[in-house]
Amino acid sequence: MIIKQLSVFLENKSGRLHQVFDILGNENINVSACSVADTSEFGILRMIVSDPDKARTALKEQKFSVNISEVISFATPNTPGALSKTLAIMSKAGISIEYIYGFSVGEKSFIVLRCDNIEKAITEFHRQEMELIAASDLYKF
């Protein structure tokens, strides 16, 4: 249930984001989810891709700074308050969240989460009978 996520460090310069997606497209790598956080000087592009190792290699060959980290993904109902209930579970378990991003398809929301203790989070999600999402399932969207 642990998913490899790419983090790409980008200068805040016109065309850099396009270059990343162009490289991935040329390598036939699909992006299932992504998020960009930025400051005035640089940004961090976080992505779930169909082949993280191939993507990292391709981007590094083009002189991008790339890191792979571990995240988890889960589904919640696409209804008001559903994410709050999940975050309460994490809080009660003493798990700190570093960041989240997500998207919704129909009646479900899919959340990607980076936390300080992934194994504990997985255990807690199983205990609460929550729907964890495998990387291969994310590629279907």
Rank of each mutant, 00 (worst) to 15 (best):
F74V: 00
V8L: 10
T76E: 14
L87R: 01
H18M: 13
M47H: 03
C115D: 09
I97Q: 07
H18D: 11
A75I: 02
T86Q: 15
I89M: 14
A82P: 15
S136W: 03
L17Q: 10
R46N: 07
S7I: 02
S136P: 09
E107L: 11
G25Y: 05
M130V: 04
L59R: 01
I29S: 07
D116M: 05
L87H: 03
S96I: 01
E61P: 06
I89G: 01
K108W: 02
H126G: 04
R114Y: 06
F141Q: 08
I68Y: 12
V36S: 12
F141Y: 14
I72K: 05
M47L: 10
I122M: 07
A93F: 03
L17A: 14
D38N: 13
K60R: 06
K63P: 12
K120W: 07
M90Y: 03
N12M: 11
D137Q: 10
E27H: 01
E41V: 13
L17F: 12
K63L: 13
Q62L: 12
E70I: 07
K13Q: 15
N28A: 12
N117I: 03
P77D: 14
F110D: 10
E61M: 07
I111R: 03
I133P: 01
I122A: 01
E70T: 07
T79E: 15
A58S: 15
E41S: 12
V66Q: 00
N117C: 06
S7Y: 06
E41R: 13
K92I: 02
L17P: 08
S35I: 07
G94P: 03
N67F: 12
R114L: 04
T57S: 10
M90V: 01
I3D: 02
Q128K: 09
A134C: 08
H18E: 11
K54I: 02
D51W: 01
K92Y: 05
T76H: 13
F141P: 11
R46H: 03
G102C: 03
A135D: 09
L132Y: 02
I23E: 10
D22H: 05
S7R: 08
A93Q: 02
N67C: 12
K60G: 07
D22P: 01
K140S: 14
R46V: 00
P80Y: 09
T76P: 14
G94T: 00
V112W: 00
A75K: 04
N30W: 04
G15P: 09
T57L: 14
Q5R: 10
R16Q: 15
F125W: 03
A93E: 04
K60S: 13
I44L: 15
M1E: 11
S136Q: 12
E124Q: 12
